[in-house]
Write a protein that binds this DNA or RNA. Sequence first.
DNA 1: CCAAAAGTGTTTCACTTACACCCATGA
DNA 2: TCATGGGTGTAAGTGAAACACTTTTGG
Lengths: 229, 229
Amino acid sequence: MAHSYEYPRPALAVDCVVFGFDEGDLKVLLIQRDLEPFAGKWALPGGFVRIEESLDQAALRELKEETGVGKVYLEQLYTFGEPKRDPRERVVTAAYYALVKLSDHRIKGATDARDAAWFSISDLPRVAFDHEGIIETALRRLQGKVRYEPVGFELLPPKFTLTQLQHLYETILETTLDKRNFRKKILGMNLLIETDEIEQDVAHRAARLYRFHEAKYRRLEKEGFNFEL
Amino acid sequence: MAHSYEYPRPALAVDCVVFGFDEGDLKVLLIQRDLEPFAGKWALPGGFVRIEESLDQAALRELKEETGVGKVYLEQLYTFGEPKRDPRERVVTAAYYALVKLSDHRIKGATDARDAAWFSISDLPRVAFDHEGIIETALRRLQGKVRYEPVGFELLPPKFTLTQLQHLYETILETTLDKRNFRKKILGMNLLIETDEIEQDVAHRAARLYRFHEAKYRRLEKEGFNFEL
DNA sequence: CCAAAAGTGTTTCACTTACACCCATGA
DNA sequence: TCATGGGTGTAAGTGAAACACTTTTGG
């Protein structure tokens, strides 16, 4: 193995694909760049990894700095290292994806110095660098993940209706689901806690609100239980 | 976003977990380090990423240089970036995993300057750095992958018996499978081509050899077909 | 009373699982 | 002829999929 200092080093960055879900719409958080290259263009929140911090820490820090997003589900996605992906110089980026509850973060966006905004996944603007490919990769990963792990709840408020949950799955998986079968299956897992509250301010019969029983899921998971669909 | 040259940069490496399958045993290829730190210890093949090459290229190059392994299935696994994972200085490593046909690579190992050897996954020596964790991550990934994509064939010779295939799955998934059900399922996919050859030099009835119909799989995959178990 | 979404069961079909014996071959 | 693994079918059970009407509520 060669010594590391014999060669020039690529720069190392992190970028985050932040997903939110709102009114049947899957959204991604983008920030407007204020520096070249691609100044003025939309891009994923991210930045360079500091010498003393882990990649996870770097991703969290950038997320906080650029978007105000705090407590989120965060997972490493893939590391992109094509030599020409940054026109200035060699930059390798460890991409992450995050799931946030829009109920917590609806206000954020234009809070920081930087301009940030949510875009529907089906109506993204042109983005800088290879970020379109990164977003695409993140979406595919989310589609895979949501089938066999209960990450969908990270995108919903703590209390939600079964219809909201179904719409979330339909949106992410780009499909439609049968209402009765969906409810049968999800309730059959006994991982939802029925609250005695109902949704408010709707012009029709109000649906019951449920919570996800995270602790119970963690317990079952350890015993080999598999969340599926 | 800060300019990259304001800060010291981590070094960037790649490491490969190379899997092979031999006589019912899942193996990993390790090399003996000749430099500090951990000189003399076993470690994953890998090295630093050069400034003009992609991560995939770096992984392939290191694999070739250190082990002679050429045509393989190669996929990025995860990027490990804990600040202290290398005692000398900050090194971030993009880990890959590779699947090779031991029938092609049985001879290799001690060919290069470096000492290389195959170890059973169930009987690994102590390894350098955080490589044990990387191997563990790779194994879990392989276990997940093998269920819903036909990567198992990358570990078998081009022609194989159904029993070999079953043993491969049993080994990777650490379980046992019912012979009749396994054969029914795998043959029912119509992705195996029955050759008119049989295995040689066995002290009992010789089993028929099959090939994996890769082209057909690629076609079906595009139409939405899902390989499963 | 109308519009809109909530909520609820049953039947059918496909797939998974469990299970045991005879056959072919080489030593 | 014996030991070793190769090769084969069926029945029962479980889970997925299809499917439509009544109820509640607010406007």
